[in-house]
Deep mutational scan, measured.
Amino acid sequence: EKTLKIVADSEEEAEALAKELAEKYNLEVTIERNPEEEGKYVITIKIKP
């Protein structure tokens, strides 16, 4: 299993990107607040072998 993390500037941007990735590529995608940067969100994508 591989994990890729993407940082987005807004929750709306994160949700839109996560939804597109999940639907288009059938990936497991989660969104959470970035504890290191206020106002940023981390999109985590898990790629199963």
Rank of each mutant, 00 (worst) to 15 (best):
S10P: 00
A18F: 04
I43T: 01
S10G: 03
T3I: 13
E1H: 08
V7P: 10
K24Y: 09
K5C: 14
I47K: 05
E37T: 10
L27Y: 15
E38F: 05
I43M: 02
E11I: 14
E15T: 14
K24D: 03
E20P: 01
E23V: 04
E28Y: 05
T44N: 06
A16F: 09
I43K: 00
L17F: 09
K24H: 08
I45S: 01
N26W: 12
E15F: 14
E12N: 06
E38I: 04
E32N: 07
S10N: 08
K5T: 15
A22N: 09
E20Y: 15
I45Q: 00
T30R: 07
I43R: 00
L17R: 05
Y25S: 03
Y25L: 06
I45W: 01
L4Q: 05
A14V: 02
L21Q: 01
P49L: 15
T3P: 06
P35R: 07
Y25M: 05
E11H: 11
E37W: 14
K48N: 13
T44G: 02
P49V: 15
A22K: 14
P49G: 13
E28G: 03
G39K: 03
P35N: 10
A16W: 09
A14N: 00
E28T: 10
T44C: 07
I31C: 03
E13C: 12
E13V: 08
I43P: 00
A22Q: 14
E12R: 07
Y41Q: 02
K40N: 05
A8I: 13
E28K: 05
K24I: 09
E12G: 06
K24E: 03
Y41T: 03
E38Y: 08
E11M: 15
T44R: 04
K46D: 04
N26G: 14
A16S: 09
L17M: 12
K46C: 04
A14M: 03
I45H: 00
V42Y: 05
L17A: 03
A8D: 00
T3A: 07
D9M: 07
K40D: 02
P35E: 11
R33H: 07
K46M: 09
A8Y: 03
I31D: 00
T30N: 06
A22R: 15
E13Q: 10
V29W: 06
E13K: 07
E13Y: 06
K19N: 05
N34M: 13
I6R: 02
T3F: 10
Y41N: 02
K2Q: 12
L21F: 09
E12F: 10
P35G: 09
T44I: 15
E12I: 06
L21C: 04
E12D: 08
I6W: 15
E36M: 11
K5Y: 13
P35T: 10
K19G: 04
Y41E: 00
T30M: 11
I43C: 03
I43S: 00
P49W: 09
E23Y: 09
V29C: 10
Y41H: 04
I47W: 14
P49R: 10
I47A: 07
